[in-house]
């Protein structure tokens, strides 16, 4: 005997249909409950409840003279890597991306049923000769332990690496205010300044709190950032500050740093560091 045959035959045929429909509807609803739950006892997490991680992105050099080569990797069966230049549409990633101009590439991963990853942005900057033969003053001078080649380090077109203790590519300060005063060899039209910094939270190296650009004692641009709070974070940053094009022969970059390492950090109460390896004028 099928289940609908137990419904009393005296009930109107339409009502029998309704009863069957409602029964099936309940079955469907129960299935939906299983899908939504995922967190109920004895129930399993569903694919559509999970977000993908982002791809691993590598670049041969974030500063380049001719071209930058960017590679992405995401080893998960059935998943795709998508990328886009600046604010263009996404394309499917299939091979290393080559660019001969400054910009950024945004990546994300996708897979059917799963939620797409957060976006990951990789900036890269084409080097130029605007700082060649310029006079750069660092006030105050970098800490003796991390003085690099002084002002030359900021215009040598060489990227520092995570091992900031070795080599002469990084300049490091523990001062709350740092000024970089640049006198150019010849005037230029300036519309963007890139400041390349290091974040290494375990080593108490944070991004600047604020960067201001001054020309002829006038404020041209200012940027502010919240303090990173990921205790393991180690990353390179290339901070762009854009503004309406102006002709300059000198410019001052004023960097304001946090005063104290925050409470949640093992070195709380000490002075944080800021590390810069390059300044690029465009």
């Amino acid at each position: 005997m099928e289940f609908w045959q137990v419904i009393p035959y005296k009930i109107d045929q339409n009502l029998r249909c309704i009863a069957i429909v409602l029964l099936l509807f309940c079955v469907a609803c129960n299935m939906q409950k299983i899908k939504i739950a995922g967190n109920g006892v004895g129930e399993f997490v569903q694919e559509d409840e999970v977000k993908l991680a982002g791809p691993i992105v590598r670049i041969d050099s974030m500063f380049f003279k001719k071209q930058a080569r960017v590679l992405a990797d995401f080893r998960m069966e059935g998943a795709s890597i998508l990328y886009k230049f600046d604010d263009q549409e996404y394309s499917l990633y299939s091979e290393p991306i080559v660019s001969n101009r400054s910009g950024k590439i945004t990546f994300r991963t996708e897979k059917e049923t799963y939620n797409a990853s957060d976006e990951f942005v990789m900036p890269f900057v084409k080097m130029n000769d605007h700082l060649k033969e310029s006079n750069i003053q660092l006030i105050p001078a970098p800490d003796l332990a991390y003085s690099g080649d002084g002002s030359d380090s900021l215009s040598d077109q060489l990227k520092g690496d995570y091992n900031y203790r070795e080599g002469n590519k990084w300049c490091g300060w523990q001062d709350s205010l740092v000024q970089i005063r640049i006198e150019l060899a010849s005037p230029m039209n300036l519309e963007k300044i890139w400041i390349s910094t290091l974040t290494d939270i375990p080593s108490s190296i944070f991004n600047p709190k604020q960067i201001s650009i001054f020309s002829e004692n006038s404020l041209v641009a200012v940027g502010e950032w919240n303090m990173e709070n990921d205790l393991n974070c180690k990353e390179y940053n290339i901070i762009p500050l854009s503004f309406t094009s102006i002709q300059i022969s000198s410019v001052v970059i004023e960097i304001i740093n946090e005063i104290e390492v925050p409470q949640w950090h093992p070195n709380s109460g000490n002075r944080p560091w800021v590390f810069i390896d390059e300044i690029i004028l465009e």
Binding site: A28, Q46, E47, D48
Partner: peptide
């Protein structure tokens, strides 16, 4: 339609 689309109920 939900029944016909089992991908919606894929256990991770």
């Amino acid at each position: 339609s939900l029944l016909a689309n089992p991908s919606l109920y894929k256990d991770l």
